[in-house]
Design a protein around this nucleic acid. Sequence first.
DNA 1: GATTAGCACTCTACATCAGTGAGTGCTATT
DNA 2: AATAGCACTCACTGATGTAGAGTGCTAATC
Lengths: 343, 343
Amino acid sequence: MDVELSARSRQILEAIVEDYIATAEPVGSSAVARRHALTLSPATVRNVMANLEEMGLLTSPHTSAGRVPTDKAYRFYVDSLVGLRQVTREEKRHIIQRCRQSGAGLPEILKETSRALSSLSNYMGIVVAPSFTSDIFRHIEFIRIGSHKVLAILVSTNGLVQNRLIETGDDIPENDLLAMSNYLNELMQGLTISQARERILAEMQSEKVQYDSMMSQALRISEQAVTVGGDEIFVEGQARILDQPEFSDAGRMKEIFRAFEQKGQMLRLLNRCMNADGVQIYIGSETPVSQSAGVSLITSRFTTGNNTIGLLGVIGPTRMGYSSVIPIVDYTARLVSRLLSEI
Amino acid sequence: MDVELSARSRQILEAIVEDYIATAEPVGSSAVARRHALTLSPATVRNVMANLEEMGLLTSPHTSAGRVPTDKAYRFYVDSLVGLRQVTREEKRHIIQRCRQSGAGLPEILKETSRALSSLSNYMGIVVAPSFTSDIFRHIEFIRIGSHKVLAILVSTNGLVQNRLIETGDDIPENDLLAMSNYLNELMQGLTISQARERILAEMQSEKVQYDSMMSQALRISEQAVTVGGDEIFVEGQARILDQPEFSDAGRMKEIFRAFEQKGQMLRLLNRCMNADGVQIYIGSETPVSQSAGVSLITSRFTTGNNTIGLLGVIGPTRMGYSSVIPIVDYTARLVSRLLSEI
DNA sequence: GATTAGCACTCTACATCAGTGAGTGCTATT
DNA sequence: AATAGCACTCACTGATGTAGAGTGCTAATC
């Protein structure tokens, strides 16, 4: 950020941003002068505001309205102005309770986490489950369902389960299935799911296997089993954004809901947030979410016991309560990481 | 329905309902007279409309607006007026393609089905998966995850999988787990999940078991495993209802979205629709969904190969294209039943 | 007796038009 | 540098008028 500001300009910018976050109305010079501890006249404030506008930090919707912060202003605000609130004991209790109450399964915990994020922030909570493919293989099992159908069940050390119905050309007897799973369990011991997949593909080339029809069949089937679908993503509190005044008109809302209907697209975008550690903040046009929808995204990674990583965070309007949401996201990520490592 | 109407009244009512469905605007006497094949003057139509209003079939939002059908009118319409459209070849192809394209797993099929319902009807598509508890037990399996954690995997003949992480007091060796699952697989052979649960509870009382610590442990654990959570429900196309003019104002929309956030409540209400065969139609105030929200519900049951039943259907405004949606729901239910019985 | 033409009436939607007030930018003053 | 003053802009509000859609009633017509 190449923004250089005098102390006073910064204070005024901060005042404007916070006022706007609180009220969602353009804020005028006199409002700033009044609210502001520093005794300055509206006229002076106006001069400063004119500067800020020139620097691209403020805009006014029309001549006689107050000023509204731009994305750039929010950026500056979160980077250097925002005074982060502490997470209150109340809130901590709420998060912990939520994350704990559900059954011990990972998906349940994550779902509750997204609920908690949503209800504490009053925006949308999202959680992207750790990618199954980077989980460590624990167990594979085949169960005969129909005469030509086999259910493959794949378990990771995180206790995640993926199952897949596979059509087999022949009817495979139970005994063979058992032998196959023994062979494969041996083969994939200690690997991640994606490594396991590579191992399988490699093994399929080996001569020894090519002459053993059962083994090659086992590999063919398990290859399908380990090719699992996309990650899971939990979104909660979509209705909450209807409370935000900026989305009360139907058009903008539709945009957002559309964006969330294709979770696939969503995921691809969220994956970008996975690369850095700590709390990540994307504001407005920086956001990958449906461009120019006036949406901000605050995320943080969390880790499981096995160092696989997931993502959690909050989506809300750019006019978001950063000072409270950022600590909440941060705290939640740490908490979830801790909870999961205990498992 | 205790509504007796002359042929002409019925025709006029039908015209009004269909006009209103098409335009979402109150329909006036002259519009009916024009559209209507029968050559009648607006004045005559007005007389009839006055009658219909007195009978509670129409209302006018204000003196000089046209008439709007009441829920009662829609009821009468679907019961005795509506001329059902055939499902076009195009549509059939679309549904089939959608249901087939996904992997062979039941959840995937149902998800795609709800998608298909949504995109063909242009309203919200819902599918309630067959209750797992009435599925027939196929297989149970325990996998050691941590030192005091066991993952129980429960498979039904439909290929549905439920898994549950269970904390065990002691550390159970793999061998014991194997023995336990053998014992339980024997025990629950051929039963439905809910029957299996009862069997387990009964077995826990038997003397023979009480002295065998391994068996009693097996029962304790499996009892947790078969106590599975609620049914699954797939809702697709929520954003579509934003296209409906009656929901373009934020307030009503919020109501609906709120209603759908608690799937639990939703499910309880949908379960009522499970009792009867064939296409069920609930209009406006008849609907269990968030009262007085102007929502209609069209559902039909479908069955799997094992005679477990699920529910699918469409949710939209009372002003819904009944003539095309009803056949679509009907056809889809039959198709899904057929598809699932092939599995 | 049912149907219809005619007409007065009602009410909304839309446009127009001040008046108001919030807020600005500029300039002159402190 | 800070501020007071002032003219100016522009959205918002409420009043007013008009057009149009639609109704209900009555009297004429088939």
